[in-house]
């Protein structure tokens, strides 16, 4: 009887599976970046209650959140070819539907899914930004875009980072669904591998280990990023002791007339520090 579990095989599988890692990473990063951009756009539309667009985005977000990712992948897989056929028919063009890489369907589905979820996270983060800071930036004469870039987004990023980080980890694992659109990512590679040696258990354990390690690495990177972004919060409060404040104050105002204890007379001689 063959061994129930071939432990060495679990580890020898890993390099073979890692050959498909670039595809997994490509889907993850592209979908996250596009999802962030579109998510920000949707959030801004919703916050500013832009007529028509606001309603369209609400329906879009509701649809994406209300349907399984797998179904969205299938819709993308079948909808894009139909769309191309439609374009060909009405515009007399000759796009080859079969030449469209399968990866495109996956990227579209994942990106839209990510955008819908991210838009809610981003919206909540944008709304949490201190109104006072925004007003300070406006009063300095910043344009709307400058306020967004210099104040709103940096502040919102700190708030949104943990949830966006979780979304990124979730997305990375969800890429395993890409095989339904004939994209050979790590999971699909595993299936191919298991199909050739029938060691399904070992292959899926190898895959689980890879995803687990990738998640741990991502968590560590996110921790570092969070630490860096929140450095201003970690700074310990150091307020000048009262005695120092009095000394400073005595230098500037009280010393000339009232303060008998002040040893500094600089303030009398050079009051115009401003």
């Amino acid at each position: 009887m063959p061994k129930l579990i071939d432990f060495p095989l679990i580890f020898t599988n890993i390099p073979r599976l890692l050959k498909a890692l670039p595809v997994t990473l490509e889907i993850t990063f592209f979908a996250m970046i596009f999802g962030l951009i579109l998510g920000l756009l949707l959030a801004v539309i919703k916050i500013n209650k832009i007529p028509v667009l606001s309603q369209v985005s609400a329906v879009f977000v509701s649809f994406i959140r209300g349907t399984p990712l797998l179904v969205q992948l299938y819709i993308s897989y079948y909808a894009v070819p139909i769309l191309l056929k439609y374009i060909n028919y009405y515009n007399h063009t000759n796009f080859n539907v079969n030449a469209v890489p399968a990866l495109l369907f996956v990227l579209i589905a994942f990106s839209l899914n990510e955008a819908a979820y991210n838009s809610e996270n981003i919206r909540a983060a944008l709304l949490s930004v201190d109104r006072g800071e925004i007003e300070a930036a406006q009063s300095l004469g910043m344009t709307k875009w400058q306020v967004l870039k210099r104040v709103t987004i940096p502040n919102a990023t700190v708030v949104a980072l943990p949830t966006l980080g979780n979304a990124f980890i979730g997305l990375m694992k969800n890429t395993s669904l890409a095989f339904v659109a004939s994209v050979v990512d790590m999971t699909a590679q595993g299936q191919i591998l298991a199909g050739s040696n029938y060691r399904y258990f070992e292959v899926y354990l190898s895959l689980a280990i890879i995803y687990w390690i990738m998640t741990i690495i991502t968590e560590q990177i996110l921790k570092l990023l969070e630490k860096r972004l929140t450095i201003f919060q970690k700074a310990t409060q150091v307020v000048a002791p009262a005695s120092t404040r009095r000394f400073w104050f005595s230098q500037r105002l009280e010393a000339p007339v009232h303060d008998q204890h002040s040893t500094s007379h600089e303030a009398v001689q050079s009051p115009n520090r401003i």
Partner: peptide, 17 residues
């Protein structure tokens, strides 16, 4: 706005800077 400059009651400093 560039003609004026405002000092706020609640300071409104940029907390990340």
């Amino acid at each position: 706005r560039q003609e004026t400059s405002m000092v706020f009651q609640q300071f409104n400093l940029f907390r990340q800077k």
